[in-house]
Design a binder for these strands. Structure first.
Lengths: 221, 221
DNA sequence: CTTCAACCGGAGCACTTGCTCCACTAGGCT
DNA sequence: AGCCTAGTGGAGCAAGTGCTCCGGTTGAAG
């Protein structure tokens, strides 16, 4: 039944809250308690996903949000739907905070470094977010890191024009570097942040070494 | 029964093969077919672990080695026992090949670079090995990467004495870098090896940048 | 206040996965 | 050759997990 509704493009997710239910909207309204529960589920899910990654037990999310399994699956017909909704929100937060850090700095080189620092500090402890971001490289079908990559592209352009970044570095290089460093942050104990900061320092230095060896390109081998 | 035997320090694993059963050894001998099966299990497990990581289904290992579940669990009383045995072997291979690559090169700097290159080429596609190596940082109880770290330590010493490696780089920095790069290799598609090679190049360059910013230390914050 | 559809909760189903049990087989000693 | 026991295989158990079903509840329209 729910399946049929979703196939018809009339998923429960498209129901709107009372506040945003303008006269022109044909969508149904969600009841107040349903709205509250939905928010509670998303909030709880975000916490559990941050701690345990994508392999969480759905029961735990339901329990922590004070809601039954039926309620949870009424709002999100699939575990993947729930993860998608929550992670989209988390990615948006991650992106906006990183953009803020990057644009607040004048110097192109400092902006690039500030971007990495903030991106790693803010969200790299969110296990599920990092899992998703890294999966993009194996299975490039998803698009979850797109806005983040766009920021990286701007930063790269500015820094290279200012001569503060090796000209042969690509946006992909930087995006992949962010993925690798995110995993490094997750590997290191929370009480020893200097471990990953040293890695970051080494990588940033390597990004502008003057008499460096040329980077390998596709044609090698 | 098997449990009791293991607690007494008389595990089935301690049974020796006919060949190595010297007159002085008090151990039992394994039957020829048992020996063959054990080898087949280890071989099959290595393959499956390389492809799928530590989350494999034990049934698949049994099936691929042409052996029943009972046989598998007779040789390895626990999945973890099997993983331990197999991964120990894989780590030994990884280590010896990396050592060979490192010691075959005269120049200290080149040796360090050759070590990373070979370490990543040889075993970084073995998912389970990388998983284990990286877990060492979260839960430093295990000792699986110990010999590898010892090689890294020697390489660091040589390179720093020759002035070809920043003096503030520690062995931990390099070991963590190897972990991060191993994960990078796994993230990148197999048919695009230049992606991770470029990362490696950047990191290696960063390891000897001359006017680099000082590395963060424990006291920061 | 009444009414009722939207909503709720959680027991339970289906499937996966680590591991066990036991009837049966066959290697190796005499 | 015959015996004995180490060894074998796979059905099945128990626990975990994604998801469903349905009787009971409640927000909100009239």
């Amino acid at each position: 039944m729910e399946q049929v509704l979703r196939l018809k493009g009339e998923s429960y997710d498209e129901v709107v809250t009372r506040a945003e239910h303008s006269a022109t909207s044909p969508k149904r309204v969600r009841r107040a308690d349903a709205e509250r529960n939905r928010a509670a589920i998303i909030e709880a899910a975000a916490g559990v996903l941050a701690e345990q990654g994508c392999t969480v037990d759905v029961r735990e999310i339901a329990q922590r949000s004070g809601v039954g399994m039926g309620t949870l699956y009424r709002h999100f017909p699939t575990k993947e739907d729930l993860l998608g909704t929550v992670l989209e929100r988390e990615f948006a937060t991650w992106t906006s905070e990183a953009r803020q850090a990057a644009t607040a700095t004048e110097d192109p080189r400092a902006a690039l470094e500030e971007f990495f620092e903030q991106a790693l500090v803010n969200q790299a402890h969110h296990r599920a977010v990092v899992e998703r971001y890294c999966e993009n490289w194996r299975h490039p079908a998803q698009t979850c890191g797109q806005p983040l990559v766009r920021i990286i592209d701007e930063l790269r352009e500015r820094a290279q024009r200012a001569g503060k970044l090796r000209p042969d570095i690509t946006t992909d290089d930087l995006a992949l570097l962010l993925a690798a460093l995110s995993q490094t942050v997750q590997m290191t104990p929370v009480d020893k942040p200097w471990l990953w900061r040293r890695q970051l320092r080494v990588c940033l230095d390597g990004l502008n070494c003057e008499h460096a060896a040329p980077l390998p390109v596709a044609e090698r081998h």
